[in-house]
Every structure is written in structure tokens, then in C-alpha cells.
Amino acid sequence: MPTNFQEIANQWYEKMRLPFFNLMISRFPRLRGGEIEDIYQNIFIAIQENFEKGRIKDNTSWYSYIMTVGYNLACKHMRHADITDSYDGFDDNHDRPTTLDRIKAINLELQEEDISLFDNPEADIVLGEEIARTPEPCATILRLFYYERMPLANIAEVIGFNSARSVQSRRWQCVRNLISPVKAALKRAGIII
């Protein structure tokens, strides 16, 4: 577990490097390694600047934010160099309702039908332990799909898969692999019968 802020920032800096490089190589094949590194560093400088200027929302999804800022910086750089590589924007999904919002709405809807989903606060502790044990690339795929609501094609780009279809089949496999131990743990804790 990281013990200070610099360590946490460092962990993110290292963790995001590979997905970001994958995205850049996929979208801008003519960018050189040094240029991508330059853009990557500028993202973190920009984040700190934007915090100082109060430009960052409270509920920012950082994975998508880093990718979007990086994508825009790369576009700016390519325009400056008079090269066009990527025609598609990077979908950041800021305006879509989050999965948690949807789950809350479903919970309310089902409560009216006398079906209760969240009736035990201990579930979070049990789940936290199981989710923390999820191996890669499952942890990233599930986070990007459910939390960031990133399209499958974009997930394929950042984790270096060939196609959205491969990501889809791996996602099902990952959910299945995660749900089995979660279900067993929830049963052991008496949260589900």
C-alpha cells in the first residue's frame, strides 16, 4: 500500500504508461517514442496545473481523463507537425450516466417490486477483498467497461487487444471468474443465501 502522496502519484504514473503508449501507437503510428514520452509527461503537468486553476470536477474518472488529455495533446502536436494520423476522437463518456447511478436507479425500481439488492453494508468489505485479487488484464477491462464506460474498441486499443470482440469475450470470462469467488464469499458471510 502506498504510504504517501508522491508514491500514489508515482504508482499511477507507472500504471498508466503502457495503456497510454498503446493508445498512441494505435492512433498515431508516426509518433516517435520520445514524442509520446513528452506528451505523457505533459499530461501530468497539465493535471497539476488544472487542479491549481480549479478546472477539475470532483468525480473525474482519471483513466479516461488521462487518455483524453493525452489524445488532445497528441492531436495538437500532430497539427503543429502538419501530420494527420487519427480521424476519430477519443470517447471520454463524460455525459453518460455512470454505472453506479444506474445501479442506484435499478435498486429503487426493484424496491418498489419488493426486491432488495443492497441490504448489508458488510458486502463492501467482502467485495473489496475479492476485487483487489483480480489479476490483469481482467482488473483493467472490468474497470474500463463498468466504471469508465469506455467503448470496447477503445478498451482493445489501450490494453493492446486485436479487436472489440476479443475484449468482449475476455470480459465475460473475467466477470464469470470474479463472480464465482464473490458469490462464495458473500454466501460465507451470510449476505446472500
Binding site: N59, S61, T98, T99, L100, I103, I106, L117, F118, A123, D124, L127, G128, E130, I131, A132, L142, R143, Y146, Y147, E148, V175, L178, I179, V182, K183, L186, I191, I192, I193
Partner: peptide, 18 residues
């Protein structure tokens, strides 16, 4: 039961990410 486990898992993934 499957749905409950699923929805708790998905909510858990999102909370951890948050």
C-alpha cells in the same frame, strides 16, 4: 441470487475504482 452477486460485484468494481 446470481443477479444479486452480479450487481454487488459491478457496484464493488465501481466503488473500488472511485
Amino acid at each position: 441470487t446470481d443477479f444479486k452477486a452480479y450487481i454487488l460485484t459491478v457496484a464493488g468494481i465501481c466503488k473500488e475504482a472511485q
